[in-house]
């Protein structure tokens, strides 16, 4: 089933700080959208608004035409939209399987039986390469393993649209290559649509079908990865304006 999430004209203010100012984007099943921008440009805030963690100050979010802005996160998950946390938040007292089983029972799959959820979670852990850690307590995982678990849990909710917050940060070049390949494979198998907030440009360039660039809360460019990195506005946002004159 094809799903479409549309965020239109999203504004989010915190007191006087205008974190997001009128950004629109569309996320669809089987497409990967990269969301990039310099530090503090409002990427994570926008992701939180779409995920139902923050309410937009202005603007709307719809899923398959239905207004969902202001919905709490757990209802968004029921609807099939789930987000990873930038800093992984595993349930430390539970094993990896149990962590995944929670997502399976409370996400859009609504698996009712713990026993079958626990069984099924093996398969999902295998998908992200954590099968050998299935029965280890989440508290024993390394940071990178926790990131994989975070991703596994989002998959386990059965979400057709996933929002990923910097899942490729902190990897060595080799690990990054493997992680990108793993993600591409899982995404192809599962066919979900993904909105990827990422600093690691290599991942964005390889994976994204479409890239949205924001700076200071505003969209400054969008298009294919190749297009946006040639866009003068994007180059200026990242490298600084050549017009910024400084006389030595």
């Amino acid at each position: 089933m094809s799903r479409t999430l549309e965020a239109s004209e999203i504004h989010k203010y915190f007191g006087g700080v205008k974190a997001v100012q009128g950004v629109s984007l569309t996320l669809e099943t089987a497409r990967i959208i990269g969301l990039i921008g310099p530090n503090g440009s409002g990427k994570s805030t926008l992701l939180n608004v779409i995920a139902g963690i923050e309410k937009p100050t202005k603007g709307t979010v719809t899923v398959d035409g239905r207004r969902v802005d202001g919905w709490p996160a757990h209802r968004m998950v029921e609807l099939g939209v789930a987000k990873t946390h930038q800093i992984p938040k595993p349930f430390l007292g539970m094993t990896c399987r149990e962590n995944v089983a929670v997502a399976m029972m409370y996400g859009s799959r609504r698996e009712g039986e713990p026993a079958s959820a626990l069984e099924e979670s093996r398969r999902i852990l295998a998908m992200v390469g954590l099968d050998r850690r299935a029965d280890a307590p989440a508290s024993n995982l390394t940071v990178q393993e926790r990131k994989r678990l975070e991703f596994a849990r989002v998959l386990a909710t059965g979400a057709g649209l996933v929002l990923l917050d910097e899942i490729f940060a902190g990897l060595s070049p080799d690990e990054l290559r493997d992680a990108i390949a793993l993600f591409a494979r899982v995404q192809k198998e599962q066919g979900f649509g993904a909105l990827v907030v990422e600093h690691v440009m290599r991942a964005v360039m390889i994976l994204s079908d479409f890239v949205v660039v924001i700076e200071e809360g505003r969209k400054i460019a969008e298009g294919s990865p190749k297009e946006v990195v040639e866009d003068p506005a994007v180059i200026e946002a990242y490298l600084g304006s050549e017009a910024t004159n400084v006389t030595p």
Partner: peptide
């Protein structure tokens, strides 16, 4: 940046981190 350059002219050693590559490299 002009002020930072002045400091350097006055003999101070400066190490600066910048994302704004152009402005930084100019000085």
């Amino acid at each position: 940046f002009v002020k930072i350059r002045e400091l350097r002219e006055a003999g101070l050693t400066v190490l600066m981190v910048e994302q704004n590559a152009y402005a930084a490299l100019r000085i």
